[in-house]
């Protein structure tokens, strides 16, 4: 399973800059990033090539951070592919809580990243359905 790094940040100028600065210093490369903002603060979710390194660098700097399991699947970069994947999950009653996506360097592939309540069970389901959830190493290699 893949891991993402969640970071607590106040909603004011310079906070995202600080986080990315720490990651740059640690030599961490970003794959994708999303921010959930709530009025005065937000949570930044980062998908990176070296999640352990990123997590340690942030914690060492006193930044509230958490390494979390997340599911990332490779899908075709074409109309209807995400719909197909989500339909299969919906039919099996899987609720998606947070999600984001990005394109890979290979022009015909995209990655869909999402959080669910029970990641282990969902990974099983996805395997049965023929999807292959990516590992940290596979994400790093993208």
């Amino acid at each position: 399973m893949a891991h993402q790094i969640s970071v607590f940040a106040e909603n004011r100028p310079g906070r995202l800059r600080k986080v990315t600065g720490l990651l740059a210093e640690a030599g961490v490369n970003l794959r994708a990033l999303t921010i959930t903002g709530v009025e005065k603060y937000g949570v930044i979710k980062l998908l990176v090539d070296k999640p352990d390194l990123a997590y340690e660098a942030l914690i060492a700097a006193g930044v509230p951070a958490k390494k979390q399991e997340v599911i990332a699947i490779l899908i075709e970069d074409e109309p209807g592919s995400l719909y197909k994947a989500l339909s299969a999950l919906a039919e099996r009653g899987v609720n998606i809580e947070n999600a984001y996506g990005f394109l890979t360097h290979e022009s015909d592939k995209a990655v869909f990243v999402f959080e669910v309540e029970d990641p282990k069970q969902t990974v099983e389901l996805l395997r049965e359905m023929g999807f292959k959830p990516l590992s940290d190493a596979e994400i790093a290699a993208l």
Binding site: S6, F8, T36, V38, I59, P64, A65, N98
Partner: peptide
């Protein structure tokens, strides 16, 4: 200020 040790990684927990 929050205690970094207890950050669970999502907005729900913070709220």
């Amino acid at each position: 200020e929050i205690n970094a040790k207890f950050f669970e990684g999502d907005v729900k927990g913070l709220e």
